[in-house]
Simulated scan of single mutants.
Amino acid sequence: MKRRNSRASLPVFYSVSTALLLTACGGSDDDSGGGSTPLPAPTAIVNGVPEIDPAIAEASKKLNADKTILDIVSELNTDATAKVSFDQHMELVRIASPSRYEYRMAGEVHRRMADEWGFSRGEIKTSADGNLPGTDVQLVDGLPVYNACVEIKGTYSSSPDAQSYKGQYPKVLVESHIDVVNPEVLPPDSNPFQPIKLQPFNDPVVTAPSQLNAISSELSFDASGRIIEDANYEWASRWFASQDAAKTGGAARIYVPGYTDAMGNTSALFTLARMFKKHNIKPVYDVWICGTAGEEGKGNLAGMKQLYGFDQNLGTGSNPLNFVANFGNEGEARSTSPAAIASR
């Protein structure tokens, strides 16, 4: 098997590293930071160019040289991590998760957080019923909100001069969404999964559901939802350095709702959460890594409204959880098969 694209997770790592950097974080256990680290000044735009505070530049140098951070980067660049990340992505993306009905996806993510990724129940901040302690918003448009969030606990709250807002210490939010446009209606409990279709890369991209249904090749999963490593798995998980290489090398095109901007990004964030937990990253401010609900279609940004306590009738948010920075992992998706094209 050709080396999988283990570097695909690195852009996500650097976005989360930026969040840690802005909270004056060094990765190692013994770097507590506390309240003694000077906070950077807000970035000013001078003649159209951002003027970076020296504190950020120094923190960046420190972060780039930190042994724990370098260990994480090294681990992300292994075939073993790439394989786990690919399998996780495929196992999650097949769970049908239309906006406002994300409870199956959130439930499986919560299970993995507790049973496989090393998080305690106290570090998992969201719940199966959609309740989020501490926020002012539990329902949006009369429906529960199914966010899936874990906390990387920081050191700031234990520092002597720590300041809180409504009893909450500062937090940094890093998020991407778990909901999809299609299917618009949640499938029945008897068949909660979407097929992951595979097509030769050189074949024309399908443009109609009937064409998609006619594709017979699919990834297979066992009764527990784990991917089966058969010939189709070997085909789909191969990595190519360029589109030209994919064309000549027999690449697969992958079709499943949410493959790119939804679970492509969000699964990578979960990989980073797992890495930060494993390597015992200690930021200054608490960092919440979230799969958010209600971003697509008729979702009405329900997940973000819950996190920020946004009252849509008043048009105001109370930010009861005290988020001081927000990094959204949206935009171009990075996957373990960059030559593949997926349906959304």
Rank of each mutant, 00 (worst) to 15 (best):
R4I: 15
N5S: 15
N5E: 14
S9G: 14
Y14W: 06
S15R: 13
T18F: 07
L21P: 00
A24D: 11
G26D: 12
G26W: 05
G27T: 08
S28W: 03
D30E: 13
D31Y: 14
G34P: 05
S36D: 15
S36P: 08
T43F: 07
N47V: 02
G48H: 07
P50N: 12
D53W: 11
A57I: 11
E58T: 12
E58G: 05
S60I: 11
A65W: 05
T68P: 11
I69M: 13
V73E: 14
E75V: 09
F86V: 15
D87S: 10
H89T: 09
E91H: 01
V93D: 06
R94C: 10
S97C: 09
P98R: 05
S99I: 11
Y101H: 13
E102S: 06
Y103V: 02
Y103G: 01
R104S: 08
M105Y: 07
M113W: 11
D115G: 00
D115V: 12
W117C: 07
W117H: 00
G118F: 09
S120A: 11
G122N: 14
K125V: 15
G130E: 03
L132N: 04
P133E: 09
P133N: 07
T135L: 11
D136Q: 03
L139A: 08
G142C: 10
P144I: 06
V145E: 05
V145S: 06
Y146M: 04
N147F: 08
A148L: 04
A148T: 08
C149N: 11
Y156M: 05
P160H: 04
A162R: 01
S164E: 12
Y165F: 14
Y165K: 15
Y165C: 15
Y169V: 05
K171W: 03
L173V: 07
E175W: 04
E175K: 06
P192T: 13
Q194H: 13
P200T: 14
F201Y: 13
V205W: 07
V206I: 14
V206K: 06
V206R: 01
A208Q: 10
S210M: 09
A214S: 12
I215N: 02
E218Q: 02
S220Y: 05
A223H: 04
S224D: 15
I227N: 08
A231H: 01
W235F: 13
S237M: 04
G250Q: 13
A251P: 06
Y255C: 02
P257F: 04
Y259F: 14
T260P: 00
D261Y: 00
G264Y: 04
T266R: 08
T271P: 00
T271N: 12
R274Q: 15
M275H: 00
K277R: 14
H279F: 12
K282I: 08
V287F: 00
W288K: 02
I289F: 01
C290H: 09
G291K: 05
E295Y: 01
G297A: 08
G299Q: 05
G299T: 10
N300L: 03
A302V: 06
A302Q: 01
A302R: 05
G303N: 01
M304C: 06
Q306L: 03
Y308D: 01
Y308W: 10
N313K: 14
G317I: 10
S318R: 11
A325N: 09
N326Y: 08
G328D: 07
A333M: 00
S335T: 15
S335Q: 10
I341T: 14
